[in-house]
Design a protein around this nucleic acid. Structure first.
Lengths: 148, 148
DNA sequence: CAAGATTGAACCCTCAATCTTA
DNA sequence: TAAGATTGAGGGTTCAATCTTG
């Protein structure tokens, strides 16, 4: 049997460089922003996301099912996460007719209030700041193509 | 006490759009590539990274410590991961004088050989393909600035 | 002691199975 | 039965504590 070229064509040096830079930057930016928020408040990225959603879109309380949908979370993921957040005193859950209602505690409100400006500053410092206006425009259109 | 402007300046609509697009694209591209590799071989992203490193840079065997350094992994992370990979039959570990030697099994070699072209194709399909040559050039320089 | 490695706990995510109840 | 929610198992990561051995 002849060599079937099973290895197809490997990534060229240019392709590899872009791939590695992409992976590196994705990880780095995410980690830096998460670290800033965590240092200031103890909140993880998902904690911040959940609290922000419930406080801003629901005034501090929201149906668990609606929360899952609006965040693109599977039921089980949200259930597991809320269990942990509840144990840390960030939220409470209450049986509410046809579903469960998630209620942000005072501690949860305080944490997210502290986190908000830290998050904005972190996004500016670690993502927006290093880019020129032209970079930002190109990047936005290109990112949208990648997610499509 | 007057309002202290505790909320600093929130992200503008443009800033928010770029931040969201960034998060979205980071997650999407990573997930798609990982899904392709997993579907073809059952390997996770870290599995593929470890096997590639040991096979390509070490010919199939490498000191655990050296592996950790070359991958930027903390000792404990690598230890936990190798324990799982060992249970799945992808590698073996052997006491070797001043450290532990990681050895890729035949099953590990087979898996990474299958994964390699799938990975290259996935990177092209999900990252490189949707971009123009100009996009790629801009993106590379911009990503390097973000990681710096 | 110091370096290499392991371990346990806590966090996070996914999948599949289960429970509950209208 | 179907929707909302939980649970358990298994994979992944981090941190701090520990073990081991030159």
């Amino acid at each position: 049997m002849p060599d079937m070229d099973e290895r197809a064509t490997p990534l060229s040096a240019e392709e590899m460089a872009l791939w590695r830079a992409w992976k590196q930057a994705s990880d780095t930016v995410r980690a830096r922003i998460a670290a800033d928020i965590s240092a200031a408040t103890g909140l993880s990225d998902p904690d911040f996301g959940v609290l922000t959603r419930v406080v801003e879109d629901g005034g501090g309380r929201m149906r668990q099912n609606q929360l899952a949908e609006s965040m693109g979370y599977h039921r089980s993921r949200l259930s597991h996460h809320l269990t942990r957040m509840q144990q840390r005193g960030l939220i409470t859950r209450r049986e509410a007719g046809d579903g469960v209602e998630v209620i942000v505690t005072d501690a949860g409100r305080a944490a997210v209030a502290t986190a908000r400006p830290v998050h904005a500053a972190a996004v500016r410092r670690h993502l927006l700041g290093p880019l020129t206006a032209a970079d930002r425009a190109t990047l936005l259109s290109l990112l949208e193509r990648l997610s499509g």
